[in-house]
């Protein structure tokens, strides 16, 4: 058999899962959708000794908008459910637009929101979207639960602020503000592959089309989703001319991103892609912000 042996638990309540997580700590890996964990286990890159399968926890699968202006998504909600949700398409369009970039339909049928985020792959889409939308995450242990802002959550390759006794249970995503435009773009070698570079851009304009807020977050151009704060700040208080967009793209791609050369892309090529994607994303987001 491909994966190494492990002890399997399929708790039937979150409470039970939390007790097991407290008991086993780092030894226990959470099995959510398994679309990254199981390939790693098949290769024996990962050999967890205990798996806590959360797939029986229907209580963690929901998309809810009881509060105004924010959306709550349970950690075990499948990516395809997020993709098909009309409210998300309408109110958090950036999230909606990022979904088809995540692997392939069959993977999204099984993969979960919580798994995508907690895995913290720098090439993953949802961490980038979470940062660009200022989302936050609720983690829970037997001692209770706490919220972690996306700014503080991602610590580097596959590392997050989740403690060894905690389980990620919920994502809170704010709706886009009025007069907000968005864009999510990637360049990958084949449809569904890990992208060589990607970007999420969100900009909010005032009634004179002056930029009031801007966030630029890059995918797979550092060891974690990377927010280019200085570049985005150059947009605030300004009208988005082609010249300004070029300056921002140059600054972000030359100074702020921290690409690490891979088999498929040199550092120079990654900077080139980041520059082009920034220009495209800002133009797209600006046009959309003016329309809304």
């Amino acid at each position: 058999m491909k994966p190494a042996s492990f002890k399997y638990y399929a708790p039937e309540s979150l409470e039970e899962a939390l007790v097991l997580k407290a008991q086993y700590g780092d030894e226990a890996r959470i099995l959510a959708g398994g679309q990254s964990l199981i390939p790693a286990m098949n290769f024996r890159i990962m050999q967890p000794t205990v798996l806590l399968d959360l797939n029986l926890l229907a209580e963690l699968s929901y998309i809810s908008s009881k509060e105004s202006a924010v959306l709550h998504i349970g950690a075990m909600t499948r990516l395809s459910e997020v993709e098909d949700d009309p409210l998300i398409a309408d109110r958090v369009s950036l999230l909606h637009e990022s979904l088809p970039y995540i692997a392939h339909p069959q993977i999204r049928n099984r993969g979960t929101v919580g798994g995508n985020i907690a895995h913290a792959d720098p090439a993953a889409e949802l961490p980038v979207v979470a940062l660009a939308t200022k989302s936050r995450f609720r983690v829970q242990s037997t001692n209770g639960s706490r919220w972690i802002n996306s700014d503080d959550f991602f610590r580097g390759y596959f590392e997050t602020a989740i403690d060894s006794s905690e389980i990620l249970v919920e994502l809170e995503v704010p709706f886009h503000a009025a007069s907000t435009g968005w864009a999510f773009l990637e360049v990958s070698r084949r449809s569904g592959d890990y992208a060589m570079a990607g970007i999420a851009a969100v900009i909010t304009l005032d009634s004179d089309y002056i930029c009031r807020k801007a966030r630029l977050v890059y995918l797979n151009l550092s060891d974690a989703p990377l927010e280019a704060k200085q570049s985005a700040d150059m947009l605030v208080g300004e009208t988005l001319s082609d010249e300004l967009i070029s300056q921002v793209a140059n600054k972000a791609s030359e100074e702020e991103i921290m690409p690490m050369e891979s088999l498929h892309a040199t550092v120079n090529y990654q900077r080139h892609l980041a520059c082009i994607l920034t220009k495209r994303a800002l133009k797209l987001a600006y046009g959309r912000a003016k329309e809304t």
Partner: peptide
């Protein structure tokens, strides 16, 4: 729904 059988136990 369609899923990968190699990515499930």
């Amino acid at each position: 729904i369609s899923v990968r059988s190699c990515l499930m136990f």
